[in-house]
Design a protein around this nucleic acid. Structure first.
Lengths: 204, 204
DNA sequence: TTCTAAAATTGAGTCAATTCTGTTTTTATG
DNA sequence: CATAAAAACAGAATTGACTCAATTTTAGAA
């Protein structure tokens, strides 16, 4: 089936993303001009806007790739969690945070987050919200798993707890990317300290 | 001392803020063109940029007014908190949330939040971070007060707890302003449910 | 009052994202 | 293998935030 048109389309899309990823990293989000991305991808400006509604959506496509990888990595922890609540949470949080700067610079994260609040109804805005929800759900799944394993109390409101942990972590991550000098180790330590309150409350 | 120059300056600044507030509300942030704000304030475009570094800083000035009012209102709760942890938290959170849409529309909040992550080092970016910290500190102060009153356990990490509560509330508020159809009552109920986990853990 | 330096204002000009319109390429049909 | 409709492309034109050099206004000294 896959006719010429479809192949060319996929190829152009890939070239745009690759060009954008490279330029975003090298020149920063603002510094990466659409004309430059178009030139590097060997398409015209108009074509880029045929594929993406706006500059933010291009970044959005890159962010989605990253977060989906993170979600994937998280699956492993949920399947075989460490044998106590504290370590289990710390391990999952660790995976999220350590992965986060793999492909994306802090500046790219800042832009992505900004766009997702600025334009919540754009394709990327909606995708970003969905990703947040998926992460929340994964934390909730970990808690449910710990309950099944008899490591966490049964009478805990798992949904509310998952939201609480994700929201706190996410907000800490936002503050983290806002300060270029902030270090991953400190971020993790701060979140561990905050989660300790919860761990005490829910450990059997 | 207040000479002619200082008075004119204050007057122009006030006119710019008033014009911007009106146009932001009526036309939305994007819809409010700098030229229009300038015309309405009876100054030139260049003058606006003499007072504010960029469009976001104008919105920032308006947001700061609002948040400072909220902080002020919060003081009362900290001084005389309801007689149990759950109600105390709920009351403080309630004040923050109920006030929030007094002067600012959801769209204005979205823009303000976006700008504060996008440009964390701009005057407004820094001011916004400071406001967040002040709110966190106020929650922490409430917890300390409850501890003094013998309503909350002494062995709780107050700083970490304050951050946890604020971060969760703030994230919930962000999601709230991202969805135009979201209702205040539901937001408060969701936060109450999340906080319940903590309330159980820290009530004496 | 008059003059000068500093401070502030002005608005035309610049730059880059996004839109728009005409052209080219691909596909499907006879 | 023509050919017309549909899809995609190109790049010039538009738009709006922000800059900057020239001009105006104010404060204070002589």
């Amino acid at each position: 089936m896959s006719g010429l048109r479809a192949r060319q389309k996929a190829d152009r899309q890939r070239r745009i993303i690759e060009a954008a990823a490279e330029l975003f990293r090298d020149a920063g989000y603002e510094g990466a001009k659409i004309e430059a991305i178009a030139a590097q991808a060997e398409v015209s400006v108009g074509t880029i806007y045929n594929y993406y509604q706006n500059k933010g959506d291009i970044l959005g496509a890159i962010v989605s790739l990253e977060v989906n990888e993170v979600l994937n990595a998280g699956q492993g922890v949920v399947a075989r969690p460490p044998a106590n609540v504290g370590d289990a949470l710390d391990t999952l949080v660790g995976i999220y945070i350590e992965h986060s700067l793999h492909y994306l610079s802090k500046e790219m994260w800042r832009q992505a987050m900004a766009i997702s609040t600025q334009l919540p109804d754009s394709p990327f805005g909606q995708a970003y919200t969905a990703l947040d929800r998926a992460l929340t759900e994964q934390i909730r799944a970990l808690i449910a798993r710990l309950q099944v394993l008899g490591l966490a109390r049964q009478d805990i409101d798992g949904a509310a707890l998952g939201e609480l942990i994700f929201n706190n972590m996410n907000m800490m991550f936002i503050e983290f990317v806002k300060r270029d000098e902030a270090r991953i180790a400190e971020l993790r330590a701060a979140i561990r300290r905050q989660n300790r309150i919860l761990v005490t409350a829910i450990t059997v």
